[in-house]
């Protein structure tokens, strides 16, 4: 079983990396870019059997380690 975890910065949290990338895109004449937010993508291979149980466990992993919920949101996709 595979879990995909997307970690993104919460709205309102300044993303200096995203801003720098936006500046670079704008300077390359991609002037339509109005904002860039950079996040993290993680793929987890899981050996569990119950999809629901594993999803609940991945949620705990996100809360405890994979995301810092002070500044980040996370989204989980199970496959």
């Amino acid at each position: 079983m595979k879990a995909r975890v997307y970690v993104t910065l919460k709205k309102g949290v300044l993303d200096p990396q995203g801003r720098a990338v936006m500046g670079a895109l704008n300077s390359m004449n991609f002037s339509e870019v109005e904002d860039v937010r950079i996040g993290k993508f993680m793929e987890l291979e899981l050996k569990g059997e119950s999809r629901a149980d594993e999803e609940a466990r991945v949620r705990r992993m996100c809360e405890k380690l994979l995301a810092n919920t002070v500044i980040e949101n996370y989204r989980i996709e199970m496959e």
Binding site: V13, L14, P16, Q17, A20, N68, V70, I71
Partner: peptide, 17 residues
Amino acid sequence: LTEAGLLPGVLMRNRDL
């Protein structure tokens, strides 16, 4: 200490990277 929850908040990437 912030990650461990002993202090509030978080230290993010410096403004100028």
